[in-house]
């Protein structure tokens, strides 16, 4: 019955949506309605009014930074919810991962790879305003390096490297940092999450330390996402 209902819904929705899209602006159209004053300003050449070369980063950490704060919040909610659900469980899965692997090849390779990944992650986080990547991508890599460590050396040793409480505190702290940077704008007489308007230095175009608040927020997001990923895995794989 459920199957039948879902299929009927699918057929109807497909018919409607396909009929709709036959009318939509064609794919790749250079004069599509989405090309307007908004995108023109976002795509201002050079570092523009934000001091950031990566136009996507401009949007997520400056023009629409408030959405990104919301996004970081959703992540925080998701992890908090997961942590609460998983805390105090019997841990049928925890046992299998607690010890990790005994394979020396795996362990050695991991020892080499993890620092490399982390360095690259740091690069991605700190260069988000200049090149593809940024806090989210780099933070995920940083977290992934910890996940790799956890899989190979086991949850118990990983836990010694990063206690769950520490992870939670770092996560919360990084989010607070985001808010504080935003409030910095208020203190400097502009609006919440203002960057250049508040007087954060735009810096030299293309330099590492440029983009003002964007760079600071990116750093915070990187740390937060890394802590989130690590934390989530700690909870998914073990009991408290």
């Amino acid at each position: 019955m459920r199957q039948l209902g879902a299929t009927a819904l699918l057929v109807v929705a497909a018919a409607v949506l396909f009929a709709t899209l036959a009318e939509a602006p064609p794919f790749g159209w250079q004069e599509a309605p989405t090309r307007n004053v908004i995108t023109d300003r976002y795509l201002a050449p050079g570092a523009g009014e934000t001091g950031v070369l990566n136009a996507v980063t401009r949007i997520i950490f400056d023009y629409r930074s408030y959405d990104t704060l919301g996004e970081a919040t959703v992540l925080f909610v998701g992890v908090a919810a997961a942590v609460v659900v998983l805390s105090g469980r019997t841990g049928r899965f925890a046992v299998r991962l607690a010890g990790g692997s005994d394979d020396p090849v795996l362990q050695t390779v991991t020892r080499v790879v993890v620092p490399l990944v982390q360095v690259f992650a740091a690069y991605v986080i700190t260069h988000g305003h200049l090149s593809p990547g940024g806090g989210f991508a780099g933070g995920t890599m940083l977290g992934a390096s910890f996940v790799l460590y956890l899989f190979v050396f086991g949850a118990d040793r990983a836990r010694r490297k990063l206690r769950p409480e520490t992870g939670e505190m770092v996560e919360g702290g990084a989010a607070v940092w985001y808010v504080l940077v935003g409030l910095g704008g208020v203190l400097m007489g502009a609006s919440f999450l203002a960057n250049a308007a508040a007087g954060f230095p735009r810096g030299v175009e293309g330099a590492l330390l440029s983009g003002g608040a964007v760079w600071l927020i990116g750093l915070g997001i990187g740390v937060k996402v890394a802590a989130t990923v690590a934390n989530l895995f700690l909870h998914l794989t073990g009991e408290d």
């Binding site: 400056d62 023009y63 508040a198």
Partner: peptide, 8 residues
């Protein structure tokens, strides 16, 4: 927010 006027 961020002192950017609306459509942006």
């Amino acid at each position: 927010v961020g002192d950017w006027p609306p459509p942006w």
